[in-house]
Protein backbone atom coordinates (compact mmCIF):
# COMPACT_ATOMS: atom_id res chain seq x y z
CA UNK A 1 0.00 0.00 0.00
CA UNK A 2 2.81 2.37 0.92
CA UNK A 3 4.45 1.47 -2.33
CA UNK A 4 1.45 2.62 -4.35
CA UNK A 5 1.03 5.78 -2.30
CA UNK A 6 4.68 6.58 -3.01
CA UNK A 7 4.43 5.51 -6.62
CA UNK A 8 1.70 8.04 -7.41
CA UNK A 9 2.48 10.58 -4.66
CA UNK A 10 -1.13 10.28 -3.47
CA UNK A 11 -2.53 13.17 -1.40
CA UNK A 12 -5.93 12.93 0.31
CA UNK A 13 -7.72 15.67 2.21
CA UNK A 14 -11.23 16.72 3.17
CA UNK A 15 -13.39 14.80 5.65
CA UNK A 16 -16.40 13.92 3.53
CA UNK A 17 -17.26 10.51 2.14
CA UNK A 18 -17.71 11.25 -1.54
CA UNK A 19 -14.41 10.89 -3.38
CA UNK A 20 -13.42 13.52 -5.92
CA UNK A 21 -10.38 12.28 -7.80
CA UNK A 22 -8.30 14.84 -9.75
CA UNK A 23 -5.75 13.78 -12.38
CA UNK A 24 -3.42 16.28 -14.07
CA UNK A 25 -2.58 16.36 -17.78
CA UNK A 26 0.64 16.21 -19.74
CA UNK A 27 3.41 18.54 -18.63
CA UNK A 28 2.43 19.25 -15.06
CA UNK A 29 1.51 17.59 -11.81
CA UNK A 30 -1.17 17.61 -9.10
CA UNK A 31 -0.38 21.16 -8.02
CA UNK A 32 -2.26 22.44 -11.07
CA UNK A 33 -5.50 21.74 -9.17
CA UNK A 34 -4.73 24.06 -6.26
CA UNK A 35 -7.07 26.88 -7.41
CA UNK A 36 -10.00 24.52 -7.96
CA UNK A 37 -9.92 22.13 -5.01
CA UNK A 38 -10.81 24.72 -2.30
CA UNK A 39 -14.31 24.98 -3.82
CA UNK A 40 -14.92 21.25 -3.31
CA UNK A 41 -12.97 20.53 -0.15
CA UNK A 42 -15.90 21.21 2.23
CA UNK A 43 -18.12 18.65 0.50
CA UNK A 44 -15.76 16.01 -0.82
CA UNK A 45 -12.81 13.82 0.00
CA UNK A 46 -10.21 15.28 -2.40
CA UNK A 47 -7.73 12.81 -3.91
CA UNK A 48 -4.74 14.09 -5.88
CA UNK A 49 -2.14 12.01 -7.64
CA UNK A 50 0.88 12.44 -9.90
CA UNK A 51 0.86 10.09 -12.87
CA UNK A 52 3.88 7.82 -12.84
CA UNK A 53 6.71 9.75 -14.49
CA UNK A 54 5.31 13.17 -13.58
CA UNK A 55 5.72 15.49 -10.61
CA UNK A 56 6.91 13.74 -7.48
CA UNK A 57 5.84 10.26 -8.52
CA UNK A 58 8.35 7.47 -8.38
CA UNK A 59 10.55 7.81 -11.43
CA UNK A 60 13.17 5.23 -10.67
CA UNK A 61 12.55 2.08 -12.67
CA UNK A 62 10.08 3.96 -14.91
CA UNK A 63 8.80 1.28 -17.25
CA UNK A 64 8.84 2.74 -20.76
CA UNK A 65 7.08 -0.29 -22.22
CA UNK A 66 4.30 -0.34 -19.69
CA UNK A 67 3.62 3.38 -19.93
CA UNK A 68 3.49 3.31 -23.71
CA UNK A 69 -0.24 2.69 -23.38
CA UNK A 70 -2.68 5.02 -21.64
CA UNK A 71 -4.46 1.90 -20.34
CA UNK A 72 -1.58 1.37 -17.93
CA UNK A 73 -2.25 4.74 -16.31
CA UNK A 74 -5.93 3.77 -16.11
CA UNK A 75 -4.94 0.49 -14.44
CA UNK A 76 -2.82 2.40 -11.90
CA UNK A 77 -5.82 4.51 -10.93
CA UNK A 78 -8.14 1.49 -10.70
CA UNK A 79 -5.54 -0.14 -8.46
CA UNK A 80 -5.46 2.94 -6.22
CA UNK A 81 -9.27 2.95 -5.92
CA UNK A 82 -9.34 -0.78 -5.11
CA UNK A 83 -6.63 -0.37 -2.53
CA UNK A 84 -8.22 2.60 -0.77
CA UNK A 85 -11.72 1.20 -1.23
CA UNK A 86 -12.94 4.16 -3.30
CA UNK A 87 -16.31 3.56 -4.96
CA UNK A 88 -18.65 5.69 -7.09
CA UNK A 89 -16.05 8.40 -7.46
CA UNK A 90 -16.24 11.77 -9.16
CA UNK A 91 -13.32 11.75 -11.58
CA UNK A 92 -11.88 15.02 -12.88
CA UNK A 93 -9.27 14.58 -15.58
CA UNK A 94 -7.46 17.20 -17.61
CA UNK A 95 -6.32 16.72 -21.19
CA UNK A 96 -4.71 13.27 -21.53
CA UNK A 97 -6.09 12.28 -18.14
CA UNK A 98 -9.61 13.04 -19.36
CA UNK A 99 -8.99 10.22 -21.84
CA UNK A 100 -7.52 8.08 -19.07
CA UNK A 101 -10.81 8.62 -17.18
CA UNK A 102 -12.73 7.41 -20.23
CA UNK A 103 -10.52 4.30 -20.39
CA UNK A 104 -11.13 3.62 -16.67
CA UNK A 105 -14.88 3.59 -17.33
CA UNK A 106 -14.42 1.16 -20.22
CA UNK A 107 -12.17 -1.05 -18.14
CA UNK A 108 -14.15 -0.94 -14.91
CA UNK A 109 -17.70 0.40 -15.36
CA UNK A 110 -19.36 1.71 -12.18
CA UNK A 111 -16.11 2.79 -10.50
CA UNK A 112 -16.72 6.33 -11.76
CA UNK A 113 -20.07 7.91 -10.93
CA UNK A 114 -19.42 11.24 -12.68
CA UNK A 115 -16.73 11.76 -15.28
CA UNK A 116 -15.50 15.33 -15.78
CA UNK A 117 -13.31 15.84 -18.85
CA UNK A 118 -11.42 19.13 -19.10
CA UNK A 119 -9.97 19.84 -22.55
CA UNK A 120 -10.15 16.24 -23.75
CA UNK A 121 -8.85 15.08 -27.10
CA UNK A 122 -9.08 11.45 -28.23
CA UNK A 123 -6.64 12.10 -31.07
CA UNK A 124 -4.45 15.11 -31.83
CA UNK A 125 -3.65 14.22 -35.43
CA UNK A 126 -6.01 15.05 -38.30
CA UNK A 127 -7.29 12.46 -40.70
CA UNK A 128 -9.82 12.50 -43.56
CA UNK A 129 -12.92 12.92 -41.44
CA UNK A 130 -11.47 14.23 -38.26
CA UNK A 131 -9.81 17.46 -37.23
CA UNK A 132 -7.49 16.83 -34.28
CA UNK A 133 -5.71 20.14 -34.76
CA UNK A 134 -2.31 18.90 -35.85
CA UNK A 135 -0.78 17.12 -38.77
CA UNK A 136 1.44 14.14 -38.33
CA UNK A 137 4.33 16.39 -39.34
CA UNK A 138 3.36 18.93 -36.64
CA UNK A 139 3.50 16.28 -33.96
CA UNK A 140 6.83 14.95 -35.22
CA UNK A 141 8.16 18.48 -35.30
CA UNK A 142 6.81 19.09 -31.79
CA UNK A 143 8.60 15.99 -30.50
CA UNK A 144 11.73 17.03 -32.30
CA UNK A 145 11.40 20.53 -30.89
CA UNK A 146 10.81 19.17 -27.43
CA UNK A 147 13.88 17.07 -27.84
CA UNK A 148 16.29 19.53 -29.39
CA UNK A 149 15.12 22.82 -27.91
CA UNK A 150 13.08 22.95 -24.76
CA UNK A 151 13.72 19.69 -23.14
CA UNK A 152 17.00 19.28 -24.92
CA UNK A 153 18.94 22.16 -23.55
CA UNK A 154 17.34 22.90 -20.21
CA UNK A 155 16.84 19.31 -19.22
CA UNK A 156 20.23 18.20 -20.37
CA UNK A 157 21.66 20.77 -18.06
CA UNK A 158 19.04 20.59 -15.32
CA UNK A 159 20.22 17.24 -13.93
CA UNK A 160 23.78 18.57 -13.96
CA UNK A 161 22.70 21.66 -12.08
CA UNK A 162 20.42 19.74 -9.75
CA UNK A 163 23.16 17.28 -9.08
CA UNK A 164 25.49 20.08 -8.03
CA UNK A 165 25.86 19.71 -4.28
CA UNK A 166 27.80 22.95 -4.00
CA UNK A 167 24.84 24.95 -5.19
CA UNK A 168 21.78 23.52 -3.45
CA UNK A 169 19.80 26.72 -4.09
CA UNK A 170 19.65 25.78 -7.79
CA UNK A 171 18.16 22.42 -7.05
CA UNK A 172 15.51 24.03 -4.87
CA UNK A 173 14.64 26.51 -7.56
CA UNK A 174 14.20 23.88 -10.21
CA UNK A 175 12.23 21.70 -7.89
CA UNK A 176 9.75 24.49 -7.32
CA UNK A 177 9.08 24.71 -11.01
CA UNK A 178 6.21 22.33 -11.10
CA UNK A 179 6.49 21.72 -14.80
CA UNK A 180 10.01 20.36 -14.55
CA UNK A 181 9.75 16.72 -15.29
CA UNK A 182 12.41 14.22 -16.15
CA UNK A 183 13.17 15.07 -19.81
CA UNK A 184 13.43 11.55 -21.12
CA UNK A 185 10.20 10.48 -19.44
CA UNK A 186 8.48 13.74 -20.43
CA UNK A 187 9.36 13.17 -24.05
CA UNK A 188 8.12 9.60 -23.87
CA UNK A 189 4.87 10.74 -22.25
CA UNK A 190 4.52 13.45 -24.93
CA UNK A 191 4.82 10.84 -27.64
CA UNK A 192 2.27 8.55 -25.97
CA UNK A 193 -0.10 11.47 -25.43
CA UNK A 194 0.11 13.20 -28.80
CA UNK A 195 0.38 10.22 -31.11
CA UNK A 196 -2.31 8.13 -29.46
CA UNK A 197 -5.74 7.51 -30.95
CA UNK A 198 -8.52 6.60 -28.52
CA UNK A 199 -11.46 7.65 -30.65
CA UNK A 200 -12.86 4.13 -30.79
CA UNK A 201 -12.97 3.93 -26.99
CA UNK A 202 -15.36 6.87 -26.62
CA UNK A 203 -18.48 4.95 -27.71
CA UNK A 204 -17.85 2.41 -24.93
CA UNK A 205 -18.02 5.05 -22.22
CA UNK A 206 -21.30 4.57 -20.34
CA UNK A 207 -20.88 6.87 -17.38
CA UNK A 208 -22.59 10.25 -17.01
CA UNK A 209 -20.03 12.79 -18.25
CA UNK A 210 -19.33 16.49 -18.47
CA UNK A 211 -16.98 17.94 -21.08
CA UNK A 212 -15.53 21.33 -20.18
CA UNK A 213 -14.20 23.17 -23.19
CA UNK A 214 -12.15 26.34 -23.05
CA UNK A 215 -13.27 28.73 -25.78
CA UNK A 216 -9.66 29.33 -26.80
CA UNK A 217 -7.68 26.12 -26.72
CA UNK A 218 -4.83 25.70 -29.19
CA UNK A 219 -4.32 22.05 -28.26
CA UNK A 220 -7.82 20.66 -28.03
CA UNK A 221 -10.05 23.03 -29.93
CA UNK A 222 -13.84 23.38 -29.78
CA UNK A 223 -14.35 20.98 -32.69
CA UNK A 224 -12.47 18.31 -30.81
CA UNK A 225 -14.54 18.92 -27.66
CA UNK A 226 -17.70 18.60 -29.69
CA UNK A 227 -16.46 15.37 -31.21
CA UNK A 228 -15.93 13.91 -27.74
CA UNK A 229 -19.41 15.08 -26.71
CA UNK A 230 -20.98 13.48 -29.77
CA UNK A 231 -19.26 10.16 -29.16
CA UNK A 232 -19.89 9.77 -25.44
CA UNK A 233 -23.54 8.83 -25.01
CA UNK A 234 -24.37 10.35 -21.65
CA UNK A 235 -22.34 13.52 -21.95
CA UNK A 236 -23.01 17.19 -21.44
CA UNK A 237 -20.90 19.83 -23.13
CA UNK A 238 -20.08 23.22 -21.71
CA UNK A 239 -17.86 25.93 -23.18
CA UNK A 240 -16.38 28.31 -20.64
CA UNK A 241 -14.77 31.68 -21.25
CA UNK A 242 -11.15 30.81 -20.64
CA UNK A 243 -7.84 31.19 -22.40
CA UNK A 244 -5.69 28.26 -23.20
CA UNK A 245 -5.58 24.57 -22.55
CA UNK A 246 -5.61 24.84 -18.74
CA UNK A 247 -8.83 26.64 -17.76
CA UNK A 248 -8.45 25.36 -14.21
CA UNK A 249 -5.36 27.60 -14.01
CA UNK A 250 -6.38 30.52 -16.23
CA UNK A 251 -10.04 30.56 -15.18
CA UNK A 252 -10.30 28.48 -12.01
CA UNK A 253 -13.57 30.10 -10.85
CA UNK A 254 -15.38 29.46 -14.12
CA UNK A 255 -14.03 25.90 -14.19
CA UNK A 256 -15.08 25.15 -10.61
CA UNK A 257 -18.47 26.71 -11.24
CA UNK A 258 -19.05 24.51 -14.30
CA UNK A 259 -18.16 21.38 -12.32
CA UNK A 260 -20.26 22.38 -9.32
CA UNK A 261 -23.21 23.29 -11.47
CA UNK A 262 -23.05 19.91 -13.17
CA UNK A 263 -22.70 17.88 -10.00
CA UNK A 264 -25.65 19.64 -8.39
Amino acid sequence: MNHIIRRNNIKIFGDCEQVMFFVHGYGCDQSMWRYVTPTFEPHYKIVLIDLVGSGKSEKENYDYDRYSDLRSYAEDIIEICDLLNFKDIVYVGHSVSAMIGALIDVEKPDLIKDLILIGPSPCYVNDENYHGGFTKADIDQMLETLDSNYLGWSSTMAPVIMGNPERPELAGELENSFCQNDPKIAKHFARVTFTGDNRSDLKNVEVKSLIIQSNQDAIAGIDVGKYVHENIKNSEFVIIDAIGHCPHLSAPKATAFAIKNYLN
Binding site: G25, Y26, G27, C28, S31, M32, S95, F134, T135, D138, I139, Q141, M142, L143, E144, T145, L146, N149, Y150, W153, S154, N176, S177, F178, C179, A190, F194, D217, A218, I219, G244, H245, C246, L249, S250
Partner: peptide, 29 residues
Protein backbone atom coordinates in the same frame (compact mmCIF):
# COMPACT_ATOMS: atom_id res chain seq x y z
CA UNK B 1 5.16 29.85 -32.41
CA UNK B 2 5.49 26.62 -34.35
CA UNK B 3 2.89 23.90 -33.63
CA UNK B 4 5.39 22.19 -31.37
CA UNK B 5 6.01 25.48 -29.61
CA UNK B 6 2.27 25.97 -29.14
CA UNK B 7 2.00 22.63 -27.37
CA UNK B 8 4.90 23.52 -25.12
CA UNK B 9 3.31 26.92 -24.46
CA UNK B 10 0.04 25.32 -23.38
CA UNK B 11 1.45 22.41 -21.41
CA UNK B 12 4.41 24.09 -19.75
CA UNK B 13 4.85 27.80 -20.27
CA UNK B 14 1.36 29.13 -19.52
CA UNK B 15 0.65 26.85 -16.55
CA UNK B 16 3.97 27.91 -15.05
CA UNK B 17 3.26 31.58 -15.76
CA UNK B 18 -0.22 31.39 -14.23
CA UNK B 19 1.11 29.40 -11.35
CA UNK B 20 4.02 31.52 -10.23
CA UNK B 21 3.36 34.86 -11.98
CA UNK B 22 6.55 34.81 -14.04
CA UNK B 23 8.54 32.56 -16.34
CA UNK B 24 12.18 32.90 -17.19
CA UNK B 25 14.57 31.74 -19.87
CA UNK B 26 12.29 29.52 -21.85
CA UNK B 27 13.56 28.63 -25.29
CA UNK B 28 11.20 28.86 -28.28
CA UNK B 29 11.55 29.02 -32.03
Amino acid sequence: LTPGGKIFLETHFLPLLQFQGYVQEINFD
